[in-house]
Write a protein that binds this DNA or RNA. Structure first.
Lengths: 344, 344
DNA sequence: GCCGTATGGGAAAGCGCTTTCCGATACGGT
DNA sequence: ACCGTATCGGAAAGCGCTTTCCCATACGGC
């Protein structure tokens, strides 16, 4: 078992009858050339001994690693896992390993992970989600990030434009605005928005975009209810919305939940309240989570190329470093489905 | 920027006016004690210089890392991302980082990742999904794994009982069997199974379990159609099933898709064919993917505690190594919803 | 007051690699 | 035949830590 410790490069060199330097060169092919015969001897020796290079030692000697860090709020959320999938695919192409950091939206965890990635001398870090909760937290993250960058690290963010790094900017505002226009075009007149917490940037942008489009198209401002940025938050928000409507007679004909998960909760609340989504009340979401594309009624939403966003983020973070911050914009596309039929 | 290279431990030691050894001890607290005064000086110096330990150097010197690898078939699949979420949470508690390896179900990739994790001297590896495609592939993976274990690594698998490591065994057979019994109890009589590829163990187990339960309860054997283990596979399989039914008059009243994603595809196929799931045809899945819990009609399925499975796998792999292989069983629970109403 | 024994600091030996630098050999040109 | 120049192998110097081993000091017991 643990009897014979793992073979090292010196073992290989000795076995092949060459020096350490030659063995190293033969195995990695440096700029220096090794005579084919020796090379073969080294390869054979490595194979014979079952040699595995020690990546940590290599990282030390070379001063760089093959690892990129990915911070997400919650990997089990399809939004993040789809992004992670795209990023992981791209990473694989570059021969990089992905360190997955599930922050759970907790600032301390986020900071801990950032520190850990720095210790690991990760080649790059991609931050996604847990967007800029409080200003103070953001600035702490920004500090950590800055010192990481000064140490030669690279970083990029997804949809967190307040961080001082290259960013994949998701056009939340434009997507939500387009959705508002389409819904208004379908004949809806009284809208409500189910938003996440006020300090969540994504949520705020989508809310604002929708409100703007709605105002331009209908001349009115949608009401809104805010709750958690999750399925349960959506359900609670919807429930409250329905209660309010009954109490003061201000019923809406159309509800926009700022993400698909909240929309899902809204759907559940409607069902519970005996409201048929579609004919009786329109509901729309945002993201176009793959798993939800086939449900009944089909959920109208704004499709985001999530996997591409992950890929793009990695490209960005791996690309030539440049002095000024780069932004890469990604736009959503409105997808109308049965949850928002043309209003008769 | 890159002007001043990162502070090292020697820098800290010099700044604090102590030796390297003392600095190291002060920062990590070894079994050796450091006088409080010196300790403070070291801490202050570290802080002043913005010192970050180099995890690679530590790993080398200590001979062990803080990293665990997680192999999944496709992180964007909710099944895996939920497991990953549970595992990541547990890892965070232990101060471990998770290396995410998305194999895409490709054996070569799987092997590449395994090799990479070995190079990294990962503390442990958890394998999930891409279950044992061909025998040859399995044995190659097993070899890689064995040599990893011999090097002092630890590994565990999720639902891949053929690998020579501790495994979290999911009772696919029992869950599917229970489901079959419940469906039969609801009055269904002619069942079909939508399976994945024949060599996919999970799929085969669920198929067999269902068939066994169905046979015991109704005296008949379900027909089956197999296709990809995915949403699209489910759609295609369902389409074929419907066509066959029409051609030879052997229509079924109940369809079991071996996972929720396939069931989702089946739902889509039914909608396209104008069949109302529930009243006209019952459909059930397996896994109880969170995102699908709120769709209409509610999908009958077998609930698996996926996040717990991830946690459990990590616990297993981190626990005391033992000579014999440990198995930890996890059972599913049938959840009846509207997609399988009692048959009138 | 002396010796044996903690106690805690420091020097130095690695950990397993990469890479610079040096030296030996072979080769081409004149 | 001689010199300048490639070409390629090897010795050795790190990379940034941890940890062993040694040593100086302080302390308690008789």
């Amino acid at each position: 078992m643990a009897g014979e410790r793992a073979a090292t490069l010196s073992d290989v060199a000795r076995e092949a009858g060459v020096s350490l330097a030659t063995a190293s060169r033969a195995l990695n092919g440096s700029d220096r050339v090794v005579r084919p015969e020796l090379q073969e001897r080294v390869l054979a020796a490595a194979d014979k001994l079952g040699y595995t290079p020690n990546a940590n030692a290599q990282a030390m000697a070379r001063g760089s690693t093959e690892t990129v860090g990915l911070l997400v709020k919650d990997i089990s959320d399809p939004y993040f896992s789809t992004i992670a999938g795209g990023l992981a695919d791209e990473a694989e192409k570059h021969g990089l390993l992905v360190m997955l950091c599930n922050t759970g939206g907790q600032p301390e965890r986020e900071q801990k992970f950032l520190a850990a990635l720095r210790r690991q001398r990760s080649r790059a870090i991609v931050l996604s989600g847990s967007d800029t909760a409080g200003v103070r937290h953001t600035s702490e993250v920004a500090d950590l990030l800055t010192s990481y960058l000064e140490g030669g690290g690279r970083a990029a963010a997804i949809s967190q434009p307040r961080l001082p790094v290259d960013t994949v900017v998701i056009d939340n505002h434009g997507g939500a605005k387009a959705l508002a226009e389409r819904l208004a075009g379908l004949g809806y007149r009284r809208a409500a928005v189910l938003t996440g917490p006020a300090d969540l940037l994504v949520s705020a942008e989508r809310h604002a975009g929708f409100a703007e489009g709605w105002l331009e198209a209908t001349g009115s401002t949608p009401t809104y209810v805010s709750d958690e940025f999750s399925r349960d938050g959506g359900r609670r928000a919807m429930t409250r919305l329905l209660e309010n409507g009954r109490n003061n007679g201000s019923e809406v004909d159309c509800v926009f939940a700022v993400n698909d998960l909240m929309a899902l909760g809204a759907l559940a609340a409607c069902r519970q309240a005996g409201i048929e989504v579609g004919p009786e009340l329109a509901v729309a979401g945002f993201d176009d989570i793959a798993t939800l594309r086939d449900v009944t009624p089909g959920l109208t939403t704004v499709r985001l190329p999530l996997a591409d966003i992950g890929r793009l983020a990695l490209e960005l973070v791996l690309g030539e470093p440049s002095a000024e911050l780069r932004k890469r914009s990604v736009h959503g596309e409105v997808v109308l489905r049965e949850s928002t039929p043309p209003r008769s």
